[in-house]
Amino acid sequence: MSNAFVARSLDETRFWSRIMKEHSLFLRLGFRCEDTRLINEANQFYAIFESIENKANSFSIGTDPQTITRFNEEVHNAVSHIWVFKRKVLDLILRCQLPGANNFPLLVDHVSREANYFRNRLAELNTGRLEPLPDAIIDENIFFLRIMADHAKFISHLLDPSERKLVDQANHFSNEFDQLIFQARDLDSMRPQSQTAPLLDQFLDQNRVSVKSLRDFKKTARELIEACRVKSIIHPLLADHVFREAERFLHIIDMFENSLSGKPLPPPQSMVISDHS
């Protein structure tokens, strides 16, 4: 159990600390030149999570679990602070205190939801109170399906309007994932009667098909953006960022399906997916 705790903790922190670091960059790029205090705060968070990411990568599965417990507490504190920062930025935007800035309110809410997810996961790991498998399957899918729906909306709005075919594809994915979210919430409201192995297995299979299609679309978009073959205001790192989150979701679906069927779990994502730069 100690090895599993260390492996799971490091996998979560290696993935999400990089995501938090990149959120800091994306928020900074969306601020106005005169928003120097917010820019400085974003830069500070970038440095904090880069340090956390490096520290996580320096540990191994053989690291003492008590060391990882203390590290998780340190990371939880940092994530709680960036969550507060993100909600403050959202409040400023919704109160029209940042006119002309380029951060969508939904994007800021989106990145704050991911921070909240990360800090909750760290707390669960340190207390050893992970959800039972049937609950985790529904809750994780509701969370990630909404993340995927948001990504499709962001891509649609950040592509140049003249990229009509790609915009239409992004809008199609937005509608598809909105429908999947409604289905997931229906399954949620039918708990615990809905938590049979056949229903949960079908739920995962259906979501996998849609997530794979969206993942492939994101991969194509990333390649087009990096090659300057598409008109958009999407930062190349953002294109890679949303691709990695789709990969993460697919990995989680794999873990759930293997757990339902009793198959061996796949290795942590941080051990099988290399960074893209």
Rank of each mutant, 00 (worst) to 15 (best):
A101C: 14
Q202L: 08
Q183F: 11
P236K: 01
L125S: 07
T196D: 07
H23G: 08
S210Y: 06
F31T: 08
V230N: 06
D35Q: 10
I155Q: 11
N102C: 09
S261T: 11
F177W: 07
K55N: 00
F26C: 06
L145P: 05
Q206F: 03
K153Y: 11
D139Y: 11
S210R: 12
P65L: 05
L122C: 04
F85W: 10
L92G: 03
H23V: 01
S259A: 15
R146P: 05
I138S: 06
E114N: 07
C96K: 15
L204Y: 02
L27H: 09
K212N: 15
E114P: 03
S261W: 00
I68A: 00
V6W: 00
N57I: 01
R164Q: 15
R248N: 13
C96G: 06
L180H: 12
V89K: 09
K153A: 15
R215C: 14
K88R: 14
I234R: 00
D168I: 07
H241M: 07
H172Y: 12
A184K: 06
V79Q: 02
R222W: 03
K55S: 00
L250P: 11
N54H: 07
R164I: 15
H235F: 04
F49L: 05
V242M: 14
S259H: 03
S210C: 12
I61F: 08
S2Y: 04
R32F: 06
K263E: 13
G100S: 13
V108E: 08
L158E: 06
T36D: 12
A149V: 02
D205I: 07
D160I: 07
K231P: 01
F256I: 01
M1S: 13
E247G: 12
D188F: 13
H251D: 14
Q66C: 05
F118G: 01
K231R: 13
A170H: 03
V6I: 10
L122V: 08
V75P: 00
Q169Y: 12
N175I: 05
R146F: 10
S51M: 08
E223I: 04
N116G: 07
V111F: 11
D64P: 04
C228E: 15
L237S: 09
E34G: 07
M255R: 10
A101W: 06
E34I: 13
E124F: 03
V209G: 00
T127R: 11
E245P: 06
H151T: 07
K218V: 05
M20I: 05
L10E: 00
L92M: 14
N102D: 10
L27G: 05
P105E: 09
D64V: 08
E226G: 13
R28P: 01
R129T: 14
H157L: 15
P65D: 03
H235M: 02
N43L: 12
S58T: 10
I181P: 02
A227E: 12
S210L: 05
E73Y: 06
V211H: 01
A78S: 14
L145S: 12
L125V: 09
R229Y: 02
D178M: 09
R32C: 15
K55T: 01
S270N: 09
V79N: 03
